[in-house]
């Protein structure tokens, strides 16, 4: 493929592609957030944000994703400086915190279901689940990719230091964290607006 091919912009093809994908995902999540903001007050029946959100839990999961984002930055740094053990630990932390975040989300969704907010209860629930669900899906895919990187590094050890691939996964993971930062504010903190 194009490993260290001399490119016009000096940026590796795959990294450029990941940034383009991030631009495209901006539109994906932009539409989802707009759909949520439009539909959050249009429900006829069933619970809405004010009765159901638990801000403390969500702040914890935001911290969790922040930590995993920093761990990812460490992993990219260690990979560039060829430090195997620290890189593997960082990748493991990222995957672990990613799983914690998914755990938080699973708990939150089951709690909401228990409170009576199903996918088809009202339009608020539908747009909320679609937004946070789509983001959760991206986190899950991220955890899968990072765990494959970790497994590859554990098997190959010192021979495998592909800092391009790790950096691109880092870009993806940071973007998923950045989207959560916006979701956290727009969904959970704008509830009384």
């Amino acid at each position: 493929m194009s490993t260290h091919l001399e490119t016009n912009t000096g940026v590796d093809n795959r990294k450029f592609a990941m940034w383009t994908l991030i631009g495209s995902e901006c539109f994906l999540f932009g539409t989802l957030i707009t759909n949520y903001l439009i539909n959050r007050n249009r429900s006829v029946t069933g619970p809405t944000g004010q009765e159901i959100f638990n801000i403390d839990l969500t702040t914890l999961s935001t911290f969790d994703l922040l930590l995993s984002s920093v761990a990812m930055a460490f992993a990219v740094y260690y990979c560039k400086h060829k430090k195997l053990r620290p890189m593997q630990w960082s990748l493991a932390t990222v995957a672990l915190f990613g799983l914690f975040f998914l755990g938080f989300q699973y708990y939150e969704f089951s709690h909401f279901l228990h409170e009576g907010l199903g996918l088809s209860t009202n339009v608020f629930g539908a747009s909320f689940y679609m937004l946070t669900g789509c983001h959760g899906l991206h986190v899950a895919v991220g955890v899968m990719i990072i765990s494959t990187l970790l497994i590859k590094s554990l098997i190959k050890g010192e021979a495998w230091f592909n800092d391009d691939v790790v950096e691109i996964c880092g870009l993806y993971w940071h973007f998923v964290d950045v989207i959560w930062i916006i979701i956290f504010t727009v969904v959970y903190l704008f509830v009384y607006v």
């Binding site: 495209s24 989802l32 759909n35 029946t45 996918l119 539908a126 679609m130």
Partner: peptide, 26 residues
Amino acid sequence: PVITIALVMITFDRHFGTGFFNPGVG
């Protein structure tokens, strides 16, 4: 991505009864 979301919404409406475009439920 915008049409992808619109199509996901209509598919959810048809299969999971979400009611994005159903004026009856808002």
